[in-house]
């Protein structure tokens, strides 16, 4: 088990505050992503708990790509990972933000 924390630059307007959303399931090769309003202006905070040790650089790359694709400044993401591949992580992160932003106010 490894715990990683990131603070990501993200362009675009800050994300609106909305009720928290969780997507995905902590099953083998899968992960859950919890999206909540964060406390960092202009940046996105991500906390990762992963069962696969030694992949901090890959997480950093995947999360940077994610923050470049989406306007996620002001959000806090929490991840419980059970060994998902980078592609699965990317899709799940995009799904999480899409569901968070897609909620009716």
């Amino acid at each position: 088990m490894e715990r990683l924390a990131f603070e990501l630059e993200s362009a675009g307007p800050p994300a609106p505050r909305a009720p928290p959303v969780v997507v995905g399931v902590v099953a083998s090769g899968n992960l859950e992503v919890l999206v909540e309003p964060g406390d960092l202006a202009g940046r996105c905070r991500v906390e990762v708990a992963t069962s696969a040790n030694g992949f901090a650089e890959i997480w950093d790359a995947v999360l940077r790509d994610f923050a470049a694709r989406n306007a996620v400044a002001g959000l806090a993401l929490s991840v419980n990972d059970a060994g998902a591949t980078p592609a699965v992580v990317s899709l799940r992160l995009d799904q999480a933000v899409e569901e968070y932003l897609g909620q009716r106010p």
């Binding site: 928290p20 902590v26 909540e36 069962s51």
Partner: peptide, 22 residues
């Protein structure tokens, strides 16, 4: 007691296993 409450298993954490927020 939704996922934001983070009431997760103390036993799994103690064993170094992945927890789920719910």
């Amino acid at each position: 007691l939704g996922p934001s409450e983070r009431v997760t298993s103390p036993h799994l954490a103690g064993l170094g296993l992945a927890v789920a927020f719910d």
